[in-house]
């Protein structure tokens, strides 16, 4: 008998270990749920980690108000299926209450506004650990993240002063008012995620599969047309077969020309593509260190 785990099963074992460590070390964890494939994977792994008990923490969704309608639909049906608790932090409400101010202009996005809303939701719920589905292969600043990532009382990340993580010993100690961001799927790549979701036959939002949609081009990225984006006169709307590689706010999530209609097609596509999945994210293109800058302030 050869005692050998495949890389996918080893990643799964690692992520389950981290989630159980969070349940053991923290009093009030919450799982940040965006409706994207990474947070779907997180929920799937959390379900396995605590089975036959229910997932011992609520799902926290920061709703920008600019979501793809398909995302909300999927979210609600998943929550119902698992009997999980859902908490929503609303950007709409935050704008109304004056916590944040809406950006103006052609590239206006609610991406930055999510930071304040997320921090506010964490504070209100007294959550001391927020589990997120960020992966190190996504982006160069995320490549520097720890599994247990400390945040000060302002929710800030100090990348140059992080706690070393050795073996499988995770230090979740903190002072009152501080919290942790936990990234159980740090070591998964985009391809790993898809291979796993395919092998596990996990149901996915329709947005990930090729469908016909009204789109237009901006700065080399293809955006889905919606009422939330102000178009320039020369931006022409056309119908194309596209799919999402990441799912976020409609104003900054690019879509891809694709004919991939099954998970197997998607895996084939990713394995041969020459562009990163965040290549279509206009929020990352604001500057070379856009992600690092946002993360320091408390972005997930």
């Amino acid at each position: 008998m050869d005692y050998n785990l495949s890389h996918i099963k080893e990643l799964e074992a690692e992520s389950i270990y981290i989630m159980r460590e969070v349940a053991a070390q923290f009093e009030r964890p919450a799982l940040m749920f965006s409706g994207g494939k990474d947070s779907i994977l997180m929920v799937h792994l959390a379900h396995k980690a605590f089975y036959p008990a229910k997932i011992p923490f609520p799902l926290l969704h920061v709703d920008t108000g600019h979501n793809f309608p398909e995302t909300i639909e999927y979210r609600d049906s998943l929550v119902k299926k698992l009997g999980a608790k859902l908490i929503v932090g609303s950007v709409d409400e935050a704008i109304e209450s004056g916590l944040v101010t809406e950006e103006k202009g052609f590239n206006a996005s609610r991406n930055m506004l999510q930071i304040a809303v997320l921090l506010d939701a964490l504070e209100k719920g007294k959550y001391d650990a927020a589990l997120g589905g960020a992966r190190r292969d996504e982006e160069k600043a995320r490549a520097k993240e720890r599994f247990f990532s400390h945040r000060d009382e302002f929710g800030q990340w100090d990348p140059k002063n992080q706690r070393p993580e050795l073996w499988n010993l995770f230090n979740g100690r903190k002072n009152m008012g501080e919290h942790f961001r936990i990234f159980p799927i740090s070591n998964w790549t985009e391809l790993d995620v898809w291979q796993y979701l395919a092998a596990e036959k996990v149901e996915l939002p329709s947005l990930y599969f090729a469908h016909e949609r009204e789109v237009f081009e901006r700065e080399g990225a293809l955006l889905a047309d919606c009422e939330y984006i102000e178009k320039k006169p020369d931006e022409v709307i056309k119908k194309e077969m596209v799919r999402c590689r990441t799912i976020g706010d409609m104003t900054c999530t690019g879509v891809w020309r694709s004919t991939a209609s099954t998970v197997e097609d998607i895996i084939e596509e990713i394995a041969t593509t020459r562009m990163t999945e965040r290549g279509g994210r206009t929020d990352d293109k604001r500057s070379e260190t856009a992600m690092e800058d946002r993360k320091k302030e408390g972005y997930f």
Partner: peptide
């Protein structure tokens, strides 16, 4: 691999950076 702002400025690696690649044989 040098992902942080200060690393790119100074041309040095400050923190542990994790990178991923795979071949048909291994990840």
């Amino acid at each position: 691999t040098d992902g942080l702002k200060s690393e790119r400025e100074q041309g040095i690696t400050i923190d542990v950076a994790y990178r991923y690649f795979s071949t048909p044989k291994r990840k």
